[in-house]
Write a protein that binds this DNA or RNA. Sequence first.
RNA 1: GGGGCUGUAGUGUAGCCUGGUAUCACUCGAGCUUUGGGAGUUCGCAACCCCAGUUCAAAUCUGGGCAGCCCCA
Length: 548
Amino acid sequence: MTYTEIKKKGEKKYYYRVKSIRQGKKVNKQRIYLGGNLTKQELKEKEQQADKKLLNIPKRPETKKALPETPNQNNQGITAEKDEFSKWFTQIMLKADLADYTEVSGAIVFKPAAYAIWEKIQQECNKRFKQIGIKNTYFPLLIPEKLLIKEQEHVKNFSPEVAWVTQAGNSKLNERLAIRPTSEAIMYPSFAKWIRSWKELPLKLNQWNNVIRWEFKHPIPFLRTREFLWNEGHCAFASEKQALKDKNLILNLYKEVCENFLALYGVAGRKTEKEKFAGAVFSEKLHYVMPNGKAIEGPCYHYDGQNFAKAYDIKFQNKKGKEEYVYQYTFAISTRMLGIIFAIHSDKKGLILPPKIAPNQIVIIPILVGKNNKKILDEVKKIKSELSCYNPILDDRKDYRPGFKFNEYELKGIPIRIEIGPRDLEKKQVIVMRRDTLKKQEIKISKLKTEIPKILEEIQKSLFKKSKTIFNSKTEKAETLEKLKITIENKKIGISPLCKNIKCENNLKFKTNGAKTLFIDDKNKIKSEKCIICNKPADYFVYIAKSY
RNA sequence: GGGGCUGUAGUGUAGCCUGGUAUCACUCGAGCUUUGGGAGUUCGCAACCCCAGUUCAAAUCUGGGCAGCCCCA
């Protein structure tokens, strides 16, 4: 069918000759431009010319077919291999429904599957904080500029990444307000107000909150986000001795949660002067290693001495009636841990979660055949209620076949799957598959209640053991710069002798394409080793890697 | 801090060079038949990142912005 289409733009009229062609069920249009503001005669001529052309226009040229990534399969599963780390990690995050991007660069949505794990971490940490007398509070999100700039080292380090509130409605604020990158500056003026005598010490407070650090490196979900969630504990003491006494309590508490619940093996160590928290006397952190060989920091403890007390004027009268500054430490664990869990445990099939933090530890899938499934459905409900302490999912959807469901829950990392079909029912058994090894076994229904906890425990233990093996296999001694370079190129952490000179540490980054020191290896004392940079006697062994 | 690449339905993509017609597959929704490792079939829904410029006409060309990815420091 051919016809003339007229478009008006202002006074002008433009004419097109259009041919519509039915191709299957769709109508495709081919259009030729005739001209603008034509007289009737001109239009007729142009139309005739156009029609001749339209006759000769071949059918729509065949376009290349876009092949699906995996032929004959849908693309719900993970398609990247684990050694293409960033692609793989992004797929795990999106496809296991853990997080999503938002309109704000570097700020992600923590979807329910991920947030539930964060709640678990909070819960376990809170329990332990309370056991050692730490109380939860909440301080404001906004920090007036004059407070933020009181501690020099602190502000120097944080100011490049602070986000500011400068306006309310249409009016400019007299003093701009920082969105907390960390809360020392808003908490400590209150500390100064509240603390008068030694009797009010120690003061042990904590808050669970969000902070914003506007990093300019490109963001990675969970691992490097501009807004993240954490706890920040802030404690004040009357003496250094008391403050330092808690160091191991705090670090062990974190270590316990990370090892026993998150099944992550990490190594604690003291940071070098260059890498310690801005304003602290020293910092100790737990360190993990990612599948791509990059190191990442976990929970941390910072001893501040009297640095912040002096900046924020936190004084008390000691038992002798003399005025003295308090001694402080701080500690934190952040939503980075989620990324570490996901990255270290998971595989090509998807997420793997340690049972103790999995929101659902079991999924039950009945195999439904034909129409008479009442017996199986009844049995499955019974099993569900018997195992209710593991918060099982019962997937009795009829629209999906078992194989589809298997893959779905493997992708989402449910630790144990229970299948039960007619053949099993006859034998009074179920098939149990564990997510970490993908191995199946048959278990009598009557024994489920005693067997399931054993399997969950085994999964938990074996994941931790695996993470320990990975960590150890990714660290090696590197006594020379050459060896260190090779180590780092092999995606591993090097342990090298270094001296305290900050120039050497700066140089190290340059010479290794961006690797930095993680922590000082206190167990491994220097004998006569030389600094790998300046070749003078070294002061300590340090762990060195590229890191997040 | 520097450099490079990319942005098209929910996802992965074709088309961009050479301006006019939005491709294919999966997902999703409805129906029927199925159900022990991602079922089949029929029908359907659904997109050119944003803002300007050039042009009769922009997914396509130009400029800017935003976002994502990679490499180097």
